[in-house]
């Protein structure tokens, strides 16, 4: 099986064309990017609002738990049955799994800013929009990026399901391989997804580190 996988990687033809490894990798990243971007657009303002005002904190936790409990494959299948084949069902399923980590990161980042710092900002004459932009978000950045990192990992790993409904991405190898009893090809998909996830995680870890140097630690 390993040999089959290595043979697949070794064959030049598998690296070219619409069904080649770079193309599948590109599709996979594209679905992931769309899902994370859409989830961020939805979750970011909500997280900032709840973190800044404290309004709706209780709902946030329960809504997050519900979202986390949803089975992605089930959601996607249901949406395909309702809407037909297309990019939207898998994307919707991926967005739903990306929202909880982003929301939690933004909310926790903003809510955990030292209340005394926020009080000081208000007392010296900052209005709420400035407090959010100039104080809360910069200080929340490490946690926000942490949440984003979690979301990206989960989405990249889960984006294989798009192939289940006849779309591309690295899941193609897995589902095609399964259909053909070609486990070498399944392994190709699995290894590529794993490698992609690890590389992205490494890059994001560096990014998180870069924005949270020691100086951001509050002395007290």
């Amino acid at each position: 099986m390993i040999n089959e996988m290595l043979a697949y990687f070794a064959q030049g033809a598998n690296w070219a064309g619409e069904a080649g490894i770079p193309a599948r990798l590109g599709e996979h990243l594209w679905y992931s990017f769309l899902a994370v971007a859409a989830a961020a657009v939805l979750a970011f303002p909500v997280g900032v609002f709840i973190g800044h005002t404290g309004v709706g904190r209780v709902y946030l936790v329960s809504a997050s738990n519900v979202l986390r409990a949803l089975p992605s494959l089930g959601i996607m299948t249901l949406l395909v049955l309702l809407m037909g084949i297309g990019l939207l069902p898998p994307l919707a399923a991926l967005v739903l799994i990306a929202i909880p980590p982003i929301l939690a990161g933004v909310y926790a980042g903003v809510a955990n800013v030292d209340p005394e710092v926020v009080d000081a900002a208000r007392a010296i004459g900052m209005k709420d929009s400035r407090i959010i932009l100039q104080v809360e978000l910069p200080l929340a950045l490490p946690l926000i990026l942490g949440g984003l990192r979690g979301a990206i990992l989960q989405v990249v790993a889960t984006a294989t399901i798009a192939a289940y409904v006849n779309l591309g991405g690295l899941g193609r190898y897995i589902f095609d391989g399964l259909a053909l009893y070609d486990y070498g090809q399944v392994l190709v998909g699995a290894v590529l997804v794993t490698a992609l996830a690890l590389v992205l995680d490494g890059l994001l870890a560096l990014l998180v580190k870069a924005v949270s140097p020691a100086r951001r630690a509050i002395a007290r």
Partner: peptide, 20 residues
């Protein structure tokens, strides 16, 4: 409120400085 506060200096117990 914002106009008022900009004209009044405020010193807090733990300084309340912006760590970033």
């Amino acid at each position: 409120a914002v106009t008022l506060r900009l004209g009044i200096g405020y010193v807090l117990q733990n300084a309340g400085l912006f760590p970033h």
